[in-house]
Every structure is written in C-alpha cells, then in structure tokens.
Amino acid sequence: MSTPQDLMIVSMDVPSSPPVEPGDLSLALAGAEVIDLLGARAVTLDGERLVPGSGPAVSDHLLDQAASALVDQAPYESVEDWLWRRGRNLSSVYRGALRAAGLTAVSRPRWRPWAAGEPVLLDSAARREALDRWTSGEPVLSALASAAGIRGERTAAEVGDDAVATVLAAVHDAVEELQSVRQRKDIEKAAFDNIWRA
C-alpha cells in the first residue's frame, strides 16, 4: 500500500476527537502523494518547487495520476500550490479507491435500514499493514496523521530526509491556514446570525 492509502485507512480506523475534517485530510493526502513520489524519484524538490523526475514508473494508480498531474514546465509548482490544487476533495477519491478495491463496506443501522450507512473498513492485509505502520510510530505516517487531526498516543521520531521534512512542514502550514479560514467563516456567520436576532 502507498502512504496516502495507509493514511486514509488510519483516518477511518483510529478514533479521533474532534472528527477529522475532510479538507485537512485531503491536504495531508496530497502531501503523502508527494512523499511517495519523492521516494520513487518521480519528483524532486528544488527549494520548495516540485520538479518532475525521471524515476521508474509508479505502480499505484492514484500515485500515477498524481505524477501525471505535476506541472512539467519551469518555474514549476510550489509544494503549497500543489497541496491546494491536488488536495481538492482528495479524501473522497481515496475513500472511493478503498471501496473499489473491496477494502470497505457500508454499514447500515438496524433501526434505520433505509438510511445511507457509513463506510467501514473490512479486515484485510492492507488494513493490518497500515495499522502496523501507525502503531509502530513510523515518522512520516505519524506526522501526516497529526497534520490531518488524527492523534496518536506518542510523538513520532523526527524525519531525517530534508525534502520530506519540507513537504511535511508545507502540509502543517496549509492545514493551519484552512483552519483559520474555517474559524473566520464561523465568526462571520455568528455575527450575521446575531444581526438577524437583534
């Protein structure tokens, strides 16, 4: 499994309070794609710019799509711009990929069988591998999960690779920016509601 798929599985399997926001998760998934593409040498970093590489073909369908979506002309795209562009609704894409691979099923409440149920993970080798990676405190997955709002019981070790650390920092910054936008909208909505109550 890829890092984004492992992150998606962890987001569905590890209880989180408050619940993980789809936007935060999507940004972290876009970062996870870059990290796997760096590992496959399908992309390199020039400062904070993503430069398509000439590494081996990526065997994962969604990572192959991500590699094809890279801007292939100078001045190239910054990691931050990639996160916002590629991350749009990416959590839905990965959730759909897990369903298409037969790794999830829909659970329907017994007292409301007509209601649309929530997807739940089935027992599978992919799920066990993702959770083993999570419980071992693997630094990259732990950092991405933390950025998405999934809380672990321990702090992960530092990431030694400078390029990966750059991507992780960009993910954290993008998630913080998105949370600030959400808070600002909540404040504006509350102010608007108060005007109508007055």
Score class of each variant (00 low, 15 high):
residue 114 W to L: 10
residue 176 E to W: 02
residue 144 L to I: 13
residue 189 K to S: 14
residue 89 N to M: 08
residue 100 A to R: 14
residue 174 A to C: 05
residue 55 G to E: 06
residue 181 V to H: 12
residue 103 L to P: 01
residue 63 L to G: 13
residue 26 S to G: 04
residue 82 W to N: 00
residue 186 D to E: 13
residue 48 E to V: 15
residue 34 V to P: 06
residue 147 A to M: 01
residue 37 L to T: 07
residue 45 L to D: 09
residue 107 S to E: 10
residue 178 L to K: 15
residue 120 V to W: 11
residue 67 A to D: 01
residue 34 V to I: 15
residue 5 Q to G: 07
residue 95 R to Y: 07
residue 179 Q to W: 00
residue 7 L to Q: 02
residue 48 E to G: 11
residue 171 V to A: 05
residue 48 E to Q: 12
residue 96 G to I: 01
residue 119 P to R: 10
residue 156 A to N: 06
residue 112 R to A: 15
residue 33 E to N: 09
residue 41 R to E: 15
residue 140 V to A: 04
residue 7 L to Y: 01
residue 59 S to C: 05
residue 79 V to F: 03
residue 123 D to Q: 13
residue 91 S to R: 14
residue 22 P to E: 09
residue 164 V to G: 00
residue 46 D to H: 14
residue 125 A to M: 11
residue 160 G to M: 02
residue 42 A to Q: 12
residue 51 V to G: 02
residue 66 A to L: 05
residue 135 T to H: 13
residue 23 G to Q: 10
residue 40 A to L: 11
residue 18 P to W: 10
residue 30 A to W: 06
residue 20 V to P: 13
residue 106 V to Q: 14
residue 3 T to H: 08
residue 136 S to H: 09
residue 116 A to T: 09
residue 92 S to M: 12
residue 42 A to P: 11
residue 180 S to P: 01
residue 112 R to E: 14
residue 120 V to G: 05
residue 82 W to T: 10
residue 52 P to N: 09
residue 186 D to H: 10
residue 58 V to Q: 04
residue 4 P to S: 04
residue 119 P to K: 07
residue 169 A to M: 04
residue 89 N to A: 12
residue 119 P to L: 12
residue 34 V to A: 10
residue 187 I to Y: 09
residue 59 S to E: 12
residue 57 A to P: 09
residue 159 V to E: 07
residue 63 L to C: 06
residue 91 S to C: 06
residue 189 K to M: 14
residue 39 G to M: 03
residue 69 A to S: 15
residue 166 T to W: 02
residue 78 S to A: 02
residue 182 R to A: 14
residue 142 S to I: 00
residue 41 R to C: 08
residue 30 A to Q: 01
residue 87 G to P: 00
residue 16 S to D: 12
residue 193 D to M: 14
residue 143 A to R: 15
residue 70 L to Y: 02
residue 12 M to C: 03
residue 71 V to E: 07
residue 87 G to D: 03
residue 87 G to A: 02
residue 26 S to V: 00
